[in-house]
């Protein structure tokens, strides 16, 4: 049993990229299939790496920054609920009294909630069930849950939808559009694409840690850590998506 567990741990480490990267460098790894990435001056010794390895082995451990897991959730049943929920979170947050924290938290929350409402629930042909340009009234079983907690170092926001449709490929396509350079010029943001790609890119840029857990066609739990603006270290971040 121990031998197979050790072998599994070794095997899982190859699925996880550690080192010190920029977000743009990290996006290249993600675009080429990396679902677990940690950038830290501590490299593979960063404590979050051990949590990712445990999760890859099936142990339900949590990252130390996921302090909102036990928070009472806000419930969204309509798209018009978004602003109210975001304002409730911002008004309850001490860190958000500072405009830089407030602005970043607002932007991340808006993108995550909008994606949860408009891009999680699909028609049978795979198209989005709700049109982003119209108000959406979710079914009772489609309720989006939002949890928030903070400490002196930053803010944890967790958005859970009941669609379970987010994939690593969504991040790859988003980063392909938003990071790729063509002939030395940035490519534009094409109108034919929905907004979900740019939203994922912005969340990746503004967050220090991202942990996504997808139960396919059932649930997506999108958890992010937004550090206090005065503690933001652009080189320390992690990205982990677990698709079941």
């Amino acid at each position: 049993m121990k031998r197979s567990a050790k072998k599994s741990s070794t095997q899982d480490q190859s699925l996880l990229k550690t080192g010190l990267f920029s977000k743009e460098e990290a996006s290249i790894f993600i675009r080429t299939g990396c679902a677990h990435l940690h950038s830290s001056i501590l490299g593979s010794q960063d404590p979050t790496v051990a949590v990712s390895l445990n999760q890859l082995e099936g142990s339900p451990t949590s990252y130390s920054w996921e302090i909102a897991q036990t928070a009472t959730p806000h419930r969204l049943t309509t798209s018009t609920d978004r602003n109210g929920v975001i304002e409730n979170i911002l008004s309850a947050s001490s860190l958000a009294k500072r405009s830089q924290n407030r602005s970043r938290l607002h932007q991340v929350a808006e993108e995550l909630l909008t994606n949860a409402i408009y891009h999680s629930y699909k028609n049978s042909d795979g198209s989005d069930k709700y049109d982003r340009r119209e108000d959406a009234q979710l079914q009772s079983e489609e309720c989006v849950l939002v949890r928030f907690a903070e400490n002196l170092n930053g803010m944890n926001l967790i958005v859970e939808d009941q669609g379970g449709s987010l994939t690593l490929n969504d991040f790859q396509r988003a980063f392909e559009r938003c990071y790729q350079r063509k002939n030395g010029r940035e490519i534009g943001i094409e109108t034919k694409h929905s907004g979900a790609g740019l939203g994922l890119f912005m969340v990746f840029e503004l967050s220090a840690h991202i942990h996504v857990k997808v139960e396919k066609k059932k649930k997506t739990c999108f958890s992010v850590w937004i550090p206090d603006s005065q503690q933001f270290d652009p080189d320390t971040f992690s990205f982990n998506i677990f698709e079941e």
Binding site: H106, Q107, E110, T114, G188, I189, G195, L198, G199
Partner: peptide
Amino acid sequence: TGINSLGIRGWVNFWK
């Protein structure tokens, strides 16, 4: 005072 991802897309495409 604020801008979201679709606003950014509209802005970028307009100025392009």
